[in-house]
Design a protein around this nucleic acid. Sequence first.
RNA 1: GCGCGCGUGGCGGAACUGGUAGACGCGCUUGGCUUAGGACCAAGUGUCGAAAGACGUGGGGGUUCGAGUCCCUCCGCGCGCACCA
Length: 840
Amino acid sequence: MTGRFDPAGAERRWQARWDAAGCFAADSASPKPKTYVLEMFPYPSGRIHMGHVRNYTMGDVIARYRRMQGHEVLHPMGWDAFGMPAENAALERKVHPGTWTRDNIAAMRDQLKRLGFALDWSRELATCDPEYYGHEQALFLDLFDAGLVYRKESEVNWDPVDRTVLANEQVIDGRGWRSGAPVERRKLAQWFLKITDFAEDLLAGLESLEQWPDKVRLMQENWIGKSRGLVFSFRLAEPADDIERIEVFTTRPDTIFGASFVAIAAAHPLAQAVAAADPGAHQFIDVCRAGGTSAAEIETAEKTGYKTRLEAVHPLDPEWRLPVYIANFVLMDYGTGAIFGVPGHDQRDFEFAKQYHLPIKRVVASSHGEAALPIGEEAESEPGIAVNSEFLDGLETEEASAEVIRRAETAGWGVGTTAWRLRDWGVSRQRYWGTPIPIIHCASCGPVPVPRDQLPVVLPEDVAFDLPGNPLDRHDAWRQVACPSCGAAAARETDTLDTFVDSSWYFIRFASQPAGRPFERAEAEAWLPVDQYIGGVEHAILHLLYARFWTRALQRIGRIGIAEPFKGLFTQGMVTHETFRSVDGRWLSPDEIEVREGGALVERATSAAAERGRIEKMSKSRRNTVDPEPIVAKYGADAVRWFMLSDSPPERDLEWSIDGIEGAARFVQRVWRLATEPQAGDGPDPALDKKAHRAIAAVGEAIEGLQFNKAVAQLYELVNAIEKAAPSASRAEAVRTLVKLASPMAPHLAEECWAKLGGDGLMAEADWPSFDPNLLVDDDVTIAVQVNGKLRDTILAPRGLDRESAEALALASAKVQRQLDGAAPRKVIVVPDRLVNIVA
RNA sequence: GCGCGCGUGGCGGAACUGGUAGACGCGCUUGGCUUAGGACCAAGUGUCGAAAGACGUGGGGGUUCGAGUCCCUCCGCGCGCACCA
């Protein structure tokens, strides 16, 4: 009679033992091969959620597996501790953002520790520590000195009622989330990092990232958006103010004879010039300014334009005049902020032309014969053959484009160029809870960097949140300083850095944290690049691109010798859960729901009818979150970890279910029973040996491929096989193997079992078992026998059987004979050791 | 609007580079053990069919001796879009 495994006791016991032994402290000077396993560090929002548990469990399995393989492993944890939620908490609950953040960190650290992750807590950091952000300020100034930081105007979402800048997230349907007032776009002078200097490198570098998901590489490639095209200018028939030309960019120079209008962005200088003399234009620009700055909002808005009195002269025909519009769908940030519209072959231009009754001309066709065919209900944007285009007629799209570029360059009205979709990184945030930008504005010297010996520029703690906006703007004692350059009265920059800056180098600081500098190059390079980085796909573009840029920028200025920070990347799916709503549409949490007889759902408190919603990502707003803590308390950390790895492939979404966690808890007990029952029995069991060795090979392979669900399935198969096997020496050995293989996933259980089995030392420091390759292959194989591609029979045959014999065996099958019904096969396809297909 | 992805039993999923679809888990059914069971053990479980067999990987079409896998097309769902982290 064996007792049940007691998770709570085992967790406490072994976590203390690991701590005492210092198992997970990474030694930068170790001679062992090094592995750096990193999960995206959490924002300290309050409590750990299931998404964190899934993320950190995956990383933990890799970290523990590598350690068992004899690697020195760096597996650190820290806090992405600056950001808006802390300021929102300050507004709503009258707590200081710092207090709120640090309390959250303490709570979440405790929660993480209870899950038994193999983390090196000695390297813990929080981005809101002056020590950390002080080093960040130093790095920012290094980039400033290298000419990679500059200042320019750019648009923000402005809430005219709260008189504050809003994040895109705070703009709901074009209105401020608190005030409800329609949001406007407003220009502010802001700091930018020259990520576009690295566009070519960041694009080319994607090639080398073989251990990244293809989809992420593709998304980054599209985001960087390299395109060849033509920049040229239209001469204005009559100059406006002193502006005589409109410069445009196009990726389709071949369609130049299909132009029917020119459109400029509302923020274009020419639009401003027109508006000065034209109240209608002025009004239109004001209307364009309404609404938020996000691309989705701008591009889904109805396409509208304002026809100016200007006319553009077609560069290839001085008699040809095109109307000039100010249009809301032209982006100032891409290309030149102006386009020429070709309605026949661009869908946006098509819609615009329909609305304003502009000509829609065909200049591309799939064949010469279609030159006269009118454009139908949609623009035709695919390449083809140029038609109705004078000297271009008959040329393929690519040749035609090259020809236009050649003529433009020869005649001097345009130039072939490369355009990038990627824009420079605006890092200014008009918020308190972030890294202060270490710049002082002086009336006579301009922006002056804070001298290095005055870093860090520490955020003042004595701030009030009684008014909207950035309290640093109102903190005169902090803001007013002497100019470091001339000594005159000057003012600190009150914008803080985008929190993406904080997360663009934390992985370097984890690897090396000397006292007086951001990092020590040699030590950082000993660990970097990160071997396996794990996090959500939602970071596929921004965070990962910024971190790649920051690393390359540090490389360019000679601070580090690597270009790419993350060698292996894995993007995990979300944790989802069913949702419930009341009939009047309120979200209800699962524990507010009661299932009545017949399966009807009612709201427990009111007995009013409720309905099951769809399965969605766990979020507070949908009230479908499950707090890991009580689950861990009830089922144990190992069961929770096990469930997080089972069933769903890690890149896909995982639906949380209580049945799933109970299944995991049962598995934990099954392993415990096997490990604690009497291990009597001698003699070999070759079949079980094979099974065990295959499990070693398969589990290792699955973990290396981050296919944890497959590793789990393999372990279930091994458990099934052991339970069925009669006592033997092989069986006792298989149990020990099982415990080792399960240890990265269920480490407390494994330690406890290992101790019961009389194993030496800590399982956390044990070696990963090795397998005998000879035991992986069978002597006999099952060969599928098909007739016309349909399975009719299977035959057992010795491995390596020759084609002729396999064919003969297949033809001898009674089922095959019945199918053939006396006819001779027309053809037989033999795939050795796999299949025989008889074509009748 | 643009970019990217996903779709296989009642459910989560497995299926190496085109070669036996449904491994493994959950659930369910039957039986055993038991005072009892949400514990444990045994057997079963894609659909239709008594069986032989037929059908079956979101829908439609194609390539192939052979398609979950490749191509085209349609539908549905999700993620990102530069100030959410």
